[in-house]
Amino acid sequence: MGNALMNFTINGQSVEVEADIRSSLLDLLRNSLGFTGTKKGCDQGACGACTVLVDGERINSCLALAVQYQGRSITTVEGLGSDGTLHPLQQAFVEHDGFQCGYCTPGQLCSAIGMAREIERNIPSVVTADLSADSVAVDETELRERMSGNLCRCGAYNGIVEAISETLGKMQEGARA
């Protein structure tokens, strides 16, 4: 009951924070730590706006009790670029207009980066034709299915896929590094 002292690595920095045991990772990031880049769109795992990376894997931070993720390495949208330089995917989102209002964007970005790693690790999707293949044959349908956990009500879906397509190779190099 009550509060607990919790430890995380967030965007490469060690963080210690006292928070309500009921706090979701999302609320902890937004309300306790000021990482407001991660967004709340439904608080029920139905929109993907809260997507962050935990040890490189994408999850919905709204469904994650923070207390359960202690000791893990969490990357939010604030941690994607470096020293004022945009991550190539961030740049591609701007170039391809992969957003309008920008509210689902942090989740889309983290999700796409997590997706790149999943493809690199040959994790299939429901539209993958050959489950026994050694690597994922990436096409637009694969990207669309794999990004379907991130709703965009403005309807920037085309730009999102274009931005990811253009950047996928670079993201996978990043994941291998």
Binding site: G48, N60, S111, V126
Partner: peptide, 28 residues
């Protein structure tokens, strides 16, 4: 769903899992 044995021997299981929810939720 990503396990090679499942994909080879029980493709219906891999496909069922992958048809559910979203990648984020399947990761959790």
């Amino acid at each position: 769903a990503a396990d090679s044995h499942v994909r080879t021997h029980y493709p219906l299981l891999a496909r069922a899992i992958l048809a559910g929810a979203s990648a984020q939720i399947r990761n959790m």
